[in-house]
Simulated scan of single mutants.
Amino acid sequence: MSHDADSRGRPALVAVVAMAENGVIGRDGAMPWSVPSDLKRYRSLTMGKPMIMGRKTLESIGRVLDGRDTIVLTRSASVPFDGAIVADSPEAALALATERAKTRGADEIVIAGGGEIYRAFMDRLDRLLVTEIAAAPEGDAVFPPIDPALWEKVFEAPAERGERDSAASRFRIYERRAAGAGSPPA
């Protein structure tokens, strides 16, 4: 799926997230499920693109991901993994990601979490790529609510469940509604 840079002259801002039915995205620095088939989707959705994430998300991944620029939004001056690029504000992270996207020829910038990072960019996002995990675990990190007055679901399909997946899942794509588009039909 390819999307052109938006009218602001920057690549589209896209959140890529796996979340439970109750909005939980993490617990104690990890995902409270194991869905390896979704990790393959995540790789294909993010490959070749700059990614903005928080320090805790990078630490939970345990390394900088290959084939992608990892921009870490953190108050710290350093991060524990070589190859990560540090930004101290959402604006600085976005400027770095826009520069990296142009260098790579990428038409999207991925917002990769966690909860605080998603909240920091929610009002700027153009698209949400959501894997909903069929579970409702306890957690300490959540994805912001997806307001149907602001977001239109443009695609939904069940994901093929792999034999090692701890839960079934669905993949959804949401596009930001045009300003003044109103609420969805009841």
Rank of each mutant, 00 (worst) to 15 (best):
P158K: 14
L58H: 07
A179Y: 01
T74A: 13
F143A: 06
G162T: 05
I146C: 05
G26Y: 09
M53K: 05
D147P: 01
Y174V: 13
A12F: 00
R63A: 15
D140N: 12
L13Y: 11
L125H: 04
D123Q: 12
K40D: 09
T131G: 10
A20E: 09
M47S: 13
S60G: 13
P185W: 03
P36V: 13
D88I: 00
A84H: 07
V130D: 10
R172Q: 10
P50Y: 11
L129Y: 12
A168Q: 10
A87L: 11
R75Y: 02
G48P: 07
E116R: 11
G182T: 05
V14M: 05
A135Y: 02
L94E: 04
K153S: 09
P148S: 03
A157Q: 15
G83I: 06
E59Q: 15
L39S: 08
P32C: 10
E59N: 08
P145M: 04
E175S: 08
V16Q: 08
G115Y: 03
R161W: 02
E156S: 14
R176W: 01
A120P: 03
K102N: 14
E152I: 03
A179Q: 14
A106G: 10
T74R: 09
F121Q: 03
M122H: 06
L58R: 08
L39F: 15
M31I: 12
S183Q: 13
E132M: 13
L45V: 04
A167K: 02
S34E: 09
P184L: 10
A178W: 00
A15K: 03
E132N: 00
I109G: 11
R100M: 01
P148G: 07
S60Q: 10
S34C: 13
L65H: 05
G114P: 09
M122E: 07
K102H: 14
K153H: 04
S7A: 15
